[in-house]
Design a binder for these strands. Structure first.
Lengths: 245, 245
DNA sequence: TCTCCATATTTGGTAAACCAATTATTTGGT
DNA sequence: ACCAAATAATTGGTTTACCAAATATGGAGA
């Protein structure tokens, strides 16, 4: 029953934008559009694809965000100079990118946070330490008050990421956070005792960071994130079983 | 002199979209718009901000991508349930995110690739090995032919990322690639002998991957990426000097 | 007074129209 | 035949108008 409903919904979800991106990809891999070429005008594309120009613009915007197109005002939109294979790979990935793969997100977060905490231990300033400590205290206050503190937890990690002085790593972690919070809250992944245990783990991370002990910080972070990683991987395995049944 | 020119240009480049995002942020942090609330209608916002609805939609789209807003068709757009602090952090980061910080990109890539190759060594299938080997051969052929092969190099790394079976990590690496290619090509970061040396390094990575030797794969990858990381960090230091002079 | 259905309004989704800047073309002069 | 200036056509940027679905409203019936 459940699968049937899921399938019905799943079929219709291909948005006009994805459809356009798929067609553009086809134009490129079939050689009708070579790297460096100028795209047909937006009007021409919208007519050819049978959709409004808004969608064409949206699709171009998305591909531009990923560095595959470059549009010059009053001139035209150009395909990047990348090779066809790279473009093919990238577009395929953009289309199939799915934020619902939580186990992949949790796992990616796990490794990112280990990298993050190592860099932070190396580069933190005294202001960073203050900000991290503040976030840690906010978390503890809420937990000791019996409240849920998922967001305060995340903020603690964001402050660590900020201390890396690497805006790209910080952005990557930040991008994962809203979905992680949603997933953790909805699935009640953390038991009641988790919050209390996390307090000690946070302190261990903080102390190692403050002392600049890179390996200790990584170990503390790994211990802190290990449980949720294991749960997530178990969830993933369970999901596989259901889908394959 | 230089700074003055930079400032003049910097003032006018704030796109309408960023302006809107900034205002939305202000609405939220000032408490006029609380987490969970519904945004004013797009028309109302466009009128209030004195700009076309397209821009409002574009801004909403961007914030939705980052998980801060959720728009339900024919109903409205809602602020995520995250706390004000988290939302504030995220929006600040979205606005200031700058793809021009190449040293941060190279560094992020360095750590991502180490994680990637470890997972790949653990999880690779025989098809993955084939794809990686194919990419490696393509690269070698071009280099031996005296041609530039930056893209083939990247493709080799993409195939490794794909073997991790983690779509999030794969996406993160893919997102970095277009800008990395651009930067490497423009600045001619790789000397002529680099291409030849990379062939051996690729082979070392490949053999370790094929054998499933996780640590060897990581070491080989670290050696492969170390040079470009060092160059990038030197560039970064030099830039700092110039800007501070 | 409460419930329920018809209707009016508001929503985001979509398409079309308008604009200024750029580029291509023509045309007039040399 | 060639060059230069005027003009026509095309570009992406921006705004506006229209649509179907969802929601709020309000009045009729119980």
């Amino acid at each position: 029953m459940k699968e049937l409903i899921d399938n019905i919904q799943a079929i219709q979800v291909e948005s006009p934008v994805d459809k356009i991106i798929r067609q553009l990809k086809q134009l490129i891999v079939s050689g009708q559009l070579k790297p460096g070429d100028r795209l047909p005008a937006e009007r021409a594309l919208s007519e050819k694809f049978g959709v409004g120009r808004s969608y064409v613009r949206e699709a171009i915007l998305k591909l531009e965000f990923y560095g595959l197109l470059k549009t010059n005002p009053q001139s035209g939109t150009y395909v990047s100079g990348l090779g066809i294979k790279v473009i093919d790979s990238l577009i395929t990935d953009i289309i199939k990118f799915n934020k619902d793969d939580f186990s992949a997100m949790v796992e990616a977060r796990y490794y990112l946070e280990l990298d993050s905490v190592r860099l932070a231990a190396e580069r933190k300033s005294s202001e960073d330490i203050e900000a991290i400590e503040q976030a840690m205290n906010d978390y503890e206050a809420k937990v000791n008050n019996g409240e849920s503190a998922v967001e305060e937890d995340m903020l603690f990690h964001v402050m660590i990421a900020r201390a890396t002085k690497n805006s790209v790593i910080e952005s990557m972690i930040l991008n994962l956070i809203p979905d992680l919070i949603k997933h953790i809250t909805e699935n009640k992944i953390c038991g009641d005792n988790r919050g209390k245990a996390a307090i000690e783990e946070h302190r261990a991370i903080f102390e190692a960071l403050k002392a600049g002990d890179i390996d200790a910080a990584e170990n503390a972070m790994a211990g802190h994130l290990d449980e949720i990683l294991q749960i997530s991987r178990a969830d993933f395995a369970a999901k596989l079983l259901i889908n394959n049944s």
